[in-house]
């Protein structure tokens, strides 16, 4: 039963995404501007970092190339989650205007419907930007490519995407209770990726502990990246801790799933 729910959910997700992509194409000019805008979005963020480096050689002991590596990895991971689940932030809006009910009378899981709602292909822009910068940084960095480091690259990006994805779902679930609180989610998702663009050495130990043990953002890229870059962890965690990223991601997804169920149940008992 659980397995079939997953497969019907995925199938419905793909179907609805297809509809939104076709809808988008009804406004082709706008779509092109939006995609360009998305490319620029991450672009300008990195331009700001590059501008900083016109004044300095290192930030928190990291070179521009290394920061570009961090920037690229978190952008790709975040971009993946944003593409797949980025519109979860609109859930509160649906609860407010009552259109949540129209989703509940369809024979497919709500999560799939909400996640696919207003799917925006333009969000590919962020992934492309991140990938370009990641490629650029890799071409300039002198990394000792051992087998485990090569393996860690895709593991890091996918786990990172899953961790951000779990945060999007958690944020969405929260809006079942607080329908006007979509901004809270931004603090962890957009705030999280901004944080991870910079070297961990820049931040205080308390904050590092918080994003390692409480909201495990550090597993998105910091901890795996430190190992790839051959740098020690400022908290003194073992070098291979980055390999725990998939486990952490699974944990996050489980928590998000439970929160989602609880949120949906709360909605079904209060209807608002």
């Amino acid at each position: 039963m659980a397995e079939s729910a997953v497969s019907t959910g995925l199938r419905a997700y793909v179907l609805i995404v297809g509809m939104w992509v076709r809808s988008t194409m009804a406004y082709r000019t706008s779509f092109l501007i939006m995609t360009l805008g998305n490319l620029l979005a991450t672009g300008l963020d990195f331009v700001a970092i590059a501008l900083m480096f016109t004044h300095i050689g290192q930030l928190g002991g990291f070179t521009l190339d290394e920061v570009a590596f961090l920037y690229g990895t978190t952008s790709v991971a975040f971009g993946l989650a944003d593409l797949v689940l980025g519109t979860m932030g609109r859930l509160g809006q649906r609860v407010r205007d009552g259109t949540m009910d129209t989703l509940l009378v369809r024979p497919v899981p709500i999560l799939a419907q909400v996640a696919a709602d207003r799917f925006a292909l333009r969000r590919l822009g962020r992934i492309i930007q991140g990938a370009v910068l990641l490629g650029w940084s890799l071409s300039r960095l002198d990394i000792d490519w051992t087998l485990d480091r090569v393996l860690l690259m895709p593991v890091m990006l996918l786990s990172g995407g899953a961790i951000f994805g779990a945060l999007f779902v958690l944020g969405g679930a929260f809006q079942f209770w607080a329908k006007d609180a979509s901004e809270v989610q931004n603090a962890f998702t957009f705030g999280g990726t901004t944080l991870l663009e910079y070297p961990p050495t820049v931040f205080g130990k308390e904050l590092l502990r918080g994003v390692t043990f409480v909201i495990p953002l550090a597993f998105v890229n910091w901890l795996p990246a430190l190992h790839i870059l051959g740098r020690p962890d400022p908290l003194g965690l073992p070098a291979r801790i980055g390999f725990a990223a998939p486990l952490v991601a699974c944990g996050c997804c489980a928590v998000a799933g439970l929160a989602w169920r609880a949120g949906l149940r709360a909605y079904q008992s209060t209807g608002s």
Binding site: L59, D180, A181, E183, F203
Partner: peptide, 23 residues
């Protein structure tokens, strides 16, 4: 609620930027 949520987000971003500017 939206106001409180916004204040929270502003504060989080404030901390992140404050650390990077300090560096």
């Amino acid at each position: 609620v939206a106001t409180v949520a916004g204040v929270f987000t502003n504060t989080v971003f404030g901390f992140i930027l404050a650390y990077t500017y300090t560096a």
